[in-house]
Every structure is written in C-alpha cells, then in structure tokens.
C-alpha cells in the first residue's frame, strides 16, 4: 500500500519537475511547480511527519506558488516575448559540466546512506516534538533565520517605498 502511494507521488513529483523545465508556456511551468509542492507534501505525510506536511501545504502550496503565479499574471509573460533558447550541443555540454559536481555529491550521499532504518518513535513529527527540538537544540539557528527574514522584509519595504517616492 505504502509503496503504491510512494510511486504515485514520485510520478507526480518527477513529471512536475520535468514540466517546469521543458514547458514553453510559463503558466504550465507554474502548475508543474504546484505539482511538485503537493507531491512533496504527500511524501512528508507518507513519512508520518505531520508538521512538515502541513508547513508544506500552508507555505509552499498556499503562498509560494501563488506568488509565482501572481508574478506571471502581473507581467503578462507570453511565449513570443521570451528570448529564444535553442538546445544546442554546446549548451548541453556546458550544463553537464556545471551539474556534474552536484550530481556526484548527490550520488555519493545516496550511496553512503544506510538503508536499514529504525522504526519511527511514537511522537515522531508531531508539532510538540518539532517545537521542543526547535526551541532547545536548534534555538540559535532558528533565531538567526528569523532575523534574516526580518531583514529581508524590511529591505523589501524600503525598496518598494523608494520607487514610489521617485515617481511622485
């Protein structure tokens, strides 16, 4: 049963990822992104990690993809307005060279991973355990990330305000 669900999710995840890269129309790419996000949420749910599942649904599906679709909507992306990018042999070679180290690292990590997993603990992935771990063991990185987000927010507000000022 679990493996059937896993393969269905994996199918949607991979086809969504392929759709992002290969579709000419940006709206289809956004829908591919949406498929990837939902399939990832399903993967988390399959791993019994209810907190990450919900975070993925609420943040990934509910906000991130919406904003990217919003951008496509507001700048009116059309196929004929996009630069022509042909797939030439030179492009393929160059991309392969860039991707090779990352792919090697991934392969190495997968090969090294222990594939005998212990059964999950009783309260694995619930919000209580996540909260306890975040606010005890990882409290410093957590706070640093929140300061980073605050900085990004203030920066975005300042940038958008400045442009309004110039126009008026």
């Amino acid at each position: 049963m679990e493996s059937i669900i896993f393969f269905i999710l994996a199918f949607f995840l991979l086809s969504g990822a392929i759709m992002i890269v290969f579709s000419k129309e940006s709206l289809y790419s956004a829908i591919g992104f949406l498929m990837v996000m939902i399939a990832m949420a399903g993967m988390f749910a399959l791993l019994h990690h209810s907190f990450l599942f919900l975070a993925q649904i609420l943040v990934g599906v509910g906000a991130v993809v919406v904003l990217s679709i919003m951008i496509i909507l507001s700048i009116n992306l059309k196929e004929e307005n996009q630069p022509k990018q042909n797939i030439t042999r030179k492009n393929i070679l160059f991309t392969t060279l860039i991707i090779a180290p990352i792919a090697g690292l991934l392969l190495y990590a997968i090969a090294k991973a222990p594939f005998a997993f212990a059964p999950i603990a009783q309260h694995f992935g619930t919000i209580e355990t996540m909260g306890k771990v975040l606010f005890t063991h990882w409290v410093l990185p957590f706070e640093i990330v929140s300061i980073l987000l605050l900085g990004a927010m203030v920066g975005a507000i300042v940038l958008s305000r400045r442009r309004l000022h110039v126009e008026s």
Partner: peptide, 25 residues
C-alpha cells in the same frame, strides 16, 4: 488527523487555485 485544524485551513487555502487559474486561463 492529530493536526486537523491546520489541515482544514491549509486545504481551504489551496482552494484559491481554482479562481486564480480560472481567471488567468
């Protein structure tokens, strides 16, 4: 679900794709 209330809110929030994509298409 032990996270029922957030699931309901999340699923309802994903409902915005209907009107959003319908209007764009």
């Amino acid at each position: 679900l032990n996270v029922g209330i957030l699931f309901v809110l999340g699923a309802m929030a994903s409902g915005l794709y209907g009107p959003l994509l319908a209007g764009m298409a």
